[in-house]
Design a protein around this nucleic acid. Structure first.
Length: 423
RNA sequence: GGAGAGAUGGGUGAGAGGCUGAAACCAACGGUUUGCUAAACCGUCAUACGCUGUUAAGGUGUAUCGCGGGUUCGAAUCCCGCUCUCUCCGCCA
C-alpha cells in the first residue's frame, strides 16, 4: 500500500511511475486527494467538537464535586448538543475514510527508475546469462517422460489421492527433493540467513499483510471451517513475523530463510503449456526473506540476486536473469528479477525464481517499522526471493543432464542425494 | 469436544466511572559517579493522524487499555456481541 502523504507530495512522480506499471485508474488519484481534503476539514471539525466535549465533561466533574448541580445540568445540555452533531459527522467521516482507503489500495507499488518500460513478458530486460545451453543426444525426452521412465514422480497417483497438480514423488525422485531442500537451506544458512520453519496455514491478517488478501483470495486454498489459508509461499508467514512490530535500527537487516510446501489454486491458469512439473497446486520452495533499512534495500537486492545465481551455478544449470518490465511486475514489487533456467528438452526458459524489493509497500500494510537513532519511526523495506522453487529446477536438471545411460546428478548435490546417477 | 480464567505500553503487572495515556518493577536509552566492569543515583522512555511552526526545535488537539457496539455530561473501569489466549479434563502424533 502506498502512503497517501507521499502521493500528495510527489504527485507527478507518482503518476508517471504508475503509468509505467500500466495502471488504468490513475485519474482516481485526483479524486482521492479531493476526498482527502474533505476528510481533513471534516476531521478538524469533529476533533474540535470532541475537544470541547472533553473540556465540558471535565468541568462537569469539577462542578459536581463542588456541589454546583445546576451549573452542571446546563453544561450537560451543551454536551448533548455536541453529541447529536457528532453522530452524523462521524458517519460521514468514516465513509470518506473508507472511500479513500478503497481507492488507495487499488494502486500498485511504484516501480524503481531502472525498471524497463514495457507491458508484456517479451519486454523484460535480459540482464545476465550464464552457462551453455546443452545439446541433447538423439532420443532425449522431456521430463514428463523421464519421470515415468525412472519412476521418480507419479502424477496419476496424485490425481487419485488428491487431484491434478499434486504429484507423488517416489524413490530417487523423493530423495532428490529432500536433497535439494537441504542444499538450498544450507547455502542460505552459510550466507547468514536464519532458518525458520513456519506454520503452513495462516490467518487472514497475515494474508492481508503480504498482499494476498483481499485481491488474490482466489489463488489460495481456504480452510473455511477455521478461516485459515494454506500458504502460497513461505513469504507470507515469514514476513508476517514482523507485522505490527517496531524494530531497532541495529536489528536490520533481518535475514530469514524457510523451506515450505506452497499451495496455489492457480484458478483459471491451466493451459496447454503446463504439463508435468511446469505448474502445480503443491510444490516445494525455499524462500529467502529480508527486512531491511531503506538505505540498504537495493544493495541487499543485489546480494540476494547473487545468492540465487550462486545456487544455479552450483547446480550447473544455464540461466538468465530478467529485469521485469513495468507491465510484467507484480502488484507489490518495486523491482523484480526473474531467474529462468533453460530446459533443453522443452526448448524453453522456465521461471525458477523471482527476487524482489517491495520497498515499504508491504511494510506499510504490515505496520512494520524501525526506530532510527534520531527522528520518527520509519517503515522498513521488505525483500524476498525464491532460492529456489524446486519443480522447474528438477525439470531442467532431469532434461539437461539426461544421457543414454541415465541422469547425471550435479556434483554439489551428490553429497545430499547419496547417488550420482539416476538410472 | 466439556469446564473455568483472562486479554492494559517492549516485558511483568496495578487500576474497578472524572485526579489515568495509564502506578510500580524489569528491559532499553542518556547522564552522574568510576582505572575498567559492576553497583548506586538522576533523567528519558507508546503509536497514529491533525493543527500551529520555515518541510526545524517546540507547542497543541483527537484517537487508541483485544475488536465492535451500547449506557453516561464523562468509560481501561459498567452492559451486550465477537475474536483470541491460557489452565484443567477428554481425544490424539
Amino acid at each position: 500500500m502506498l502512503q497517501l502523504n507521499y502521493i500528495r507530495e510527489n504527485l507527478d512522480e507518482v503518476k508517471n511511475k504508475l503509468a509505467k506499471k500500466h495502471v488504468k485508474n490513475i485519474a482516481d488519484i485526483d479524486e482521492m486527494l479531493k476526498l482527502d481534503d474533505e476528510k481533513k476539514k471534516l476531521k478538524l471539525t469533529v476533533e474540535n467538537n470532541q475537544a470541547e466535549a472533553n473540556l465540558i465533561a471535565k468541568k462537569i466533574g469539577e462542578l459536581m464535586k463542588s456541589g454546583q448541580k445546576e451549573e452542571a445540568e446546563t453544561m450537560k445540555l451543551r454536551s448533548n448538543e455536541l453529541k447529536d452533531a457528532a453522530k452524523e459527522q462521524e458517519a460521514l467521516l468514516k465513509k470518506l475514510e473508507d472511500d479513500i482507503y478503497n481507492i488507495l489500495v487499488t494502486f500498485p507499488n511504484l516501480p524503481n527508475e531502472i525498471v524497463p518500460e514495457g507491458k508484456t513478458p517479451e519486454e523484460n530486460l535480459n540482464v545476465h546469462e550464464w552457462g551453455e545451453i546443452p545439446s541433447l543426444y538423439e532420443g532425449a525426452v522431456p521430463h514428463w517422460d523421464l519421470i515415468k521412465k525412472y519412476d521418480l514422480i507419479d502424477f496419476e497417483l496424485g490425481v487419485k489421492i488428491t487431484g491434478a497438480g499434486f504429484p507423488v514423488y517416489k524413490n530417487k525422485g523423493a530423495r532428490l527433493q529432500r536433497a535439494m531442500i537441504n542444499f538450498f537451506l544450507d547455502e542460505a544458512i552459510k550466507a547468514g540467513y536464519t532458518e525458520i520453519m513456519p506454520p503452513l496455514l495462516v490467518n487472514s491478517d497475515s494474508g492481508f499483510g503480504t498482499g494476498q488478501l483481499p485481491d488474490k483470495e482466489g489463488q489460495m486454498y481456504h480452510a473455511t471451517v477455521d478461516d485459515l489459508y494454506l500458504i502460497p509461499t513461505a513469504e507470507v508467514p515469514i514476513t508476517n513475523i514482523y507485522r505490527d512490530v517496531i524494530l531497532k535500527e541495529e536489528d536490520l537487516p533481518i535475514k530469514n530463510v524457510g523451506y515450505t510446501p506452497c499451495f496455489r489454486r492457480e484458478a483459471g491458469a491451466w493451459g496447454a503449456h503446463v504439463r508435468g512439473l511446469n505448474r502445480l497446486h503443491q510444490f516445494d520452495k525455499v524462500e529467502i526473506v529480508q527486512i531491511a533499512h531503506p538505505d540498504q534495500s537495493y544493495q541487499i537486492l543485489e546480494e540476494m540476486v547473487k545468492h540465487v545465481q550462486g545456487l544455479l551455478e552450483k547446480l550447473e544449470l544455464p540461466y538468465r536473469i530478467l529485469r521485469l518490465c513495468g507491465g510484467d511486475m507484480s502488484f507489490s514489487s518495486a523491482l523484480t528479477y526473474d531467474f529462468e533456467t533453460y530446459s533443453a528438452a522443452q526448448q524453453r526458459w522456465l521461471e525458477v525464481s523471482s527476487t524482489s524489493n517491495f520497498e515499504s509497500f508491504q511494510a506499510n500494510r504490515m505496520k512494520c517499522r524501525f526506530k532510527p537513532k534520531d527522528g520518527k519511526n520509519q517503515l522498513v523495506h521488505t525483500l524476498n526471493g525464491s532460492a529456489l522453487a524446486l519443480p522447474r529446477i528438477l525439470a531442467t536438471m532431469l532434461e539437461n543432464n539426461q544421457t543414454p545411460e541415465g541422469i547425471r546428478i550435479p556434483k554439489a548435490l551428490q553429497a545430499y542425494t547419496g547417488f550420482d546417477m539416476i538410472s
